[in-house]
Amino acid sequence: MNTVINVPSSLDDQGIEKVLEQLATVPADAPVLIDARHARWGTPYGLTAMLTIGQARATKASFSGPESEDVASYWARTGFYRHAEGIFTLAGHVPKGRTAGESEVLLEITPVAHSEDVHNVVARIQHKAQTILQNLHIDSKATMGFAMTLSEACQNIIEHAGTGGWVAVQVYEWRKRLGRRVVVIAVCDAGQGFRRSLETTQGRRLGDRWDDGAALEEAVLRGVSRFTDKGRGQGLAGIRRYVGRWDGKLTVRSGTARLSIIPTWDDDVPLTKSLPAFPGAQMQIVIPERLTR
């Protein structure tokens, strides 16, 4: 019998935690039905993380999408259903017309597994990013930096996950949290995560203090990589620099911990531990609209 996992109305970074809390008590090979019928919203992070959840299940999960035609249609335009049909057994309402390309979807959900995928993602984003960032009153010079940030975030999957992952970019109004529009990059994978990736080089050094939170601090704050090459680890440092320059927010979740680089407009906590375990790494980059005088 399926265990029903209820998706909250907002499938964002907080909503996905509620899904993971429910899954924490269900064995990976137990059949589950993920019930998103009442979902009213989905962010790039929520949707890519949902695909990652599906990939991490040992037994193919069933998924029931939003009943709202508008919401379902929007999820289809992000490319969610196109990938979901290979990962989940889709139940209930499946929208037709699964094409993406709407203006608010800067980059539909795209699989990333190889270096060539990163080239294609960067090339696609360059065409659209300049206009979108200008609309957010972000300097046109930021466009290339945005593409670089996206490139480094995607490479994190290739270099460290040991498996493929997903990337999506979207612009939307972050009314409740910020009252401004934001551009959001989400990169998720169900790979080995930061703790396992860094364990052989850093785990012994930190001894008892070694856990998912410590691994995130090493990787994100100190630019530590599993490779001994001195040049490694600069990608995440570059992402941090870009996010800092544009007053953005960076959140990286891996295993049971989540680390955030927090701007003044947000009241998140820097490091959260003891979250429900989840394989791989999930990254969210939020760049807000610049306020004009």
Partner: peptide, 14 residues
Amino acid sequence: TVSEQFTNLVTRPT
């Protein structure tokens, strides 16, 4: 060396 279609120098393998 990598692809006729690429113009960006991105990724370590590239």
